[in-house]
Design a protein around this nucleic acid. Structure first.
Lengths: 159, 159
DNA sequence: AAACTCTAGCTGACGCGTCAGCAATCCCGC
DNA sequence: GCGGGATTGCTGACGCGTCAGCTAGAGTTT
């Protein structure tokens, strides 16, 4: 790695840690939600009737099932989510549902959260910078997904 | 925020979470060190004689003192760091020192860690993409520091 | 010197995220 | 039908990071 690449890599870590912390703090101050809680509530709010299966939800937001299960336990403790009876044929399936409190909390959080992202991120960059950043991120994402697929945790077709 | 800005913001979060996880995993597999441990060991390795004051170290790596204290406790438990007698005039000061194990662990981790960063980050991007990314990150960092300074936790000159 | 304030350093509580591992269910080939 | 693998969902352990709050020494004010 060149000096420039290394510096940029370090900068990436520094910037993302800063943004993560500050936007997370804003979200907590504005709406008493963590970023993780917001993410789950957002997905459930999109879903028809505010219900979803854990596995489907996990896939949609890119988490593993364990991470989601832990988060659901915390959300349930806060009363923002509840387990619903699943009518699926599959006996393994369960169903999670947004409570009224959960829906309200999400609705109240959405606006401030977007404003916070704008304040810390969008306000800083020109249109051209956004385009360039988007390009680099897409490249990194493709590259990363490609590499990750090679070490796939999902059953790999035996070579 | 425009649609494009929002998508880029979401992509930024997704990419950085991916890189954080994968590079962290590599570091653990290669050298049995967490990213946080590596960061502290790196700073102490730079320092003359492998010793530093907590406050100075925290400032250098951009952590608050609490975060560093917790990490030092874990590092000490692993025997990679130890408290040294401070000869400073200031009775509050303490001194932390790299142990031999700590220095060895860092030396062994450095190469693989750089290779991992190259694999996940530098290999993906063209020189031009790196330049553009560096530009955007610098802008975000300046913007963020500026905003953070306004909400300064450090004693603000009374208005 | 007493009182105030600032700085250095630490700790406990708590939410987050990874990993290893478990139980139940489903599905497929025999 | 039955045994083996895959999928779904969960849990406990443990390291990380934030916050509130504490002690103690240092510098300043009155």
């Amino acid at each position: 790695m060149t000096e420039r690449q290394l510096r940029t890599w370090e900068n990436l870590q520094e910037v993302t840690e800063l943004l993560r912390r500050e936007v997370g703090r804003d979200l907590w101050n504005d709406a008493k939600l963590s970023e993780a809680e917001f993410t789950v509530l957002a997905h459930l709010s999109m879903a028809a009737k505010g219900t979803a299966r854990p596995s489907e939800c996990a896939r949609a937001i890119g988490w593993d099932s364990s991470r989601l299960a832990h988060q659901l336990r915390r959300l349930e403790k806060r009363g923002l989510v509840e387990k619903a009876a699943s009518e699926a044929a599959d006996g393994r399936a369960s169903l999670i549902a947004l409570t009224d409190d959960g829906r309200t909390a999400y609705r109240r959080a959405l606006g401030p959260h977007l404003r916070s992202a704008q304040k810390w991120f969008a306000d800083a960059l020109s249109d051209e910078q956004v385009d360039n950043l988007a390009d680099a991120l897409e490249t990194l994402l493709r590259h990363g997904s490609h590499l990750a697929a090679a070490t796939a945790p999902t059953a790999e077709p035996r070579a």
